[in-house]
Computed example of a mutant assay.
Amino acid sequence: MDQAAPRVALFATCLVDLIRPRIGFAAVAALEAAGCAVIVPDGQTCCGQPALNSGDRDNAAAIAKRMIALLEPYEHIVVPSGSCAGTIRCHYPELFEHDAEWGPRADALAARTFEIMAYLDEVRGWRPEGVTLDATAAYHDSCSGLRELGIKRQPRRLLGAIDGLALTPLAGEETCCGFGGTFCVKYPAISNAIVEEKAQAIEATGADLLLAGDLGCLMNMAGKLNRRGAPVRAFHAIELIAGMGDGPAIGEER
């Protein structure tokens, strides 16, 4: 690895670690292809998003302090999730805005934290090379990535470099899928109605694949598509970008 390569800490996220480690391996592969020295820091845990979303600011702050101390030695922190990246970039500074010690540390970490597709596209200026996949895909813009971080064009530019992959328009591509973290637990009937509409829109595209940048959203949509018997396979976009789009889709692992 080039000595000038940035030292990038991969914050894997809970869902990737527990449900779909393949996304983490794809993230490492893509970052290394983009010239980064990738470290996966030991001891990383939840970013605190569930506690924060539930109004438990004390526990969210305690978790955030631990993660700030763990991640601040690294030049860049890259996250394969818009919601977790948004928690660090947008909400850590809010948690500590009146804290003379932790506020500046949270601000500094936030400025060096990126959602992975934004990092590859905007910071590294990288495009996948030699990746081929003959398929049609619909892309869902997950809420936190889109609204907190402006993740929209970046994944489409990266996916556009994959030979044979065609992106087809998805009606309501910016509309919530109904997951919403703890929302789907607190309001299951509403969540189910929302994802039912989303699944119908995905099926109407005739796409082979469903892509997004947040595993929680993908699990929600893939589960509904599977229960409907729809022949649409779901992947995190970084899996395709890293050339891993020929493996098992979300929900197909055994």
Rank of each mutant, 00 (worst) to 15 (best):
D2W: 08
Q3W: 09
A4F: 07
V8W: 00
L10N: 02
F11L: 14
L15I: 13
D17E: 15
L18V: 13
I19T: 12
P21I: 08
G24W: 02
A33T: 04
V40P: 01
D42A: 15
T45C: 07
P50L: 04
L52Q: 01
I68F: 12
A69H: 09
L71N: 11
I77G: 06
S83F: 07
C84L: 10
Y92A: 04
Y92N: 05
E97W: 13
R105V: 09
L109D: 13
A110P: 07
T113C: 06
I116Q: 06
M117E: 13
V123Y: 08
R124N: 08
R127L: 09
H140I: 00
C143R: 00
S144T: 11
G150M: 06
R153E: 15
P155N: 14
E174M: 12
C176Y: 06
I190K: 06
N192F: 02
I194F: 05
E196S: 14
A199G: 14
A201H: 07
E203V: 13
G206L: 14
L209F: 01
L210H: 00
D214L: 02
N220R: 01
G223D: 02
K224A: 11
R227P: 03
R228V: 02
R228G: 09
A234K: 00
A237S: 07
E239Q: 03
M244K: 08
M244S: 10
G247T: 14
P248K: 06
P248S: 13
I250M: 05
E252M: 00
